[in-house]
């Protein structure tokens, strides 16, 4: 079983988000970068697949050399090898085109990407990879079991869940549920040591365009001060919600 896990390199969830003074870019100053949390669930699930069915787990990122520590962390967690496609990930289509090109050469059985990345929240890449490869796409996947060449999956739908099956190869948009939070693998010392010598291939980007253009960033409008209501007087909150906020 050959599994490819797509890894986004994103600001830690506790990061304060700032933009450069001309609002043209995200200000990386002082920001810690991590494996995108949605991708972490997929990575641990990929390790389980490998341990049960044999095979390899490859991780891929489209980015500059500064993302390599994040790929090394994925190797420390247990991936066998890493590929960094050397390019500025300018939009979802560009990134998906790069990963689809890698996949066409390597014929992975399963490609797992996070449902979205917590930086741009585009949610575009896994579905685009699937469509470029013409493979089944299961988004918001919260369960994955393999039986031979067939995958049994559960995906979240609005107001419930759905059980599906498809023949491999498939593309998964993953999230919590692929494994539980408590099951997430974290690097141990042996993993960190061995990650240093695992292969990390740098691959030139294929020629591809972007289909969207990023303009100015802005921060959300500041909230006005909170109005406190006495705990003994919840009636006042009801009046405020009705008369002032007009939400009930």
């Amino acid at each position: 079983m050959k599994v490819l896990v797509c890894i986004s390199h994103v600001p830690d969830t506790t990061s304060k988000i700032n933009f450069t003074s001309d609002n043209s870019e995200f200000d990386k100053n002082g920001v810690q970068f991590v494996i995108n949390p949605y991708d972490e669930f997929g990575l641990t699930r990929a390790m389980w697949i490998k341990e049960k069915n044999g095979g390899t787990v490859t991780v891929v990122n489209v980015g500059s050399a500064e993302t390599e520590p994040t790929l090394r962390k994925a190797l420390a967690i247990g991936a066998d090898d890493a590929v960094r496609i050397d390019a500025n990930p300018s939009d979802g289509f560009f990134v998906a085109s790069q990963i689809a090109a890698l996949a066409k050469e390597n014929n992975y059985d399963i490609i797992i990407a996070g449902r979205e990345s917590i930086d741009y929240n585009g949610g575009q890449v896994p579905g685009m990879i699937a469509a470029l490869l013409n493979q089944p796409f299961i988004n918001g996947c919260i369960g994955l079991e393999l039986e031979g060449n067939n995958a049994q999956m559960i995906r979240e739908i609005d107001g419930g869940k759905e059980k599906l099956s498809a023949d491999l190869p498939i593309v998964i948009g993953g999230q919590k549920g692929l494994v539980e939070e408590k099951d997430l693998r974290i690097p141990n010392m042996r993993g960190i040591m061995s990650a240093r010598t695992k292969p990390l291939q740098v691959r030139p980007a294929i020629d591809s365009s972007s289909r969207t253009k990023v303009g100015d960033f802005e921060k959300p409008a500041p909230k006005s001060a909170v109005k406190m209501v006495d705990a003994e007087n919840v009636q006042e909150l009801v009046s405020l919600l009705h008369n002032e906020a007009k939400v009930i």
């Binding site: 979802g92 949610g123 575009q124 469509a131 739908i157 609005d158």
Partner: peptide
């Protein structure tokens, strides 16, 4: 959830720019 599952596929089929 369904819309987000359709949009990226449709964007490839239509060679479209996708803004989510």
């Amino acid at each position: 959830l369904n819309g987000k599952s359709v949009a990226p596929i449709a964007s490839i089929m239509l060679n479209a720019g996708l803004i989510t």
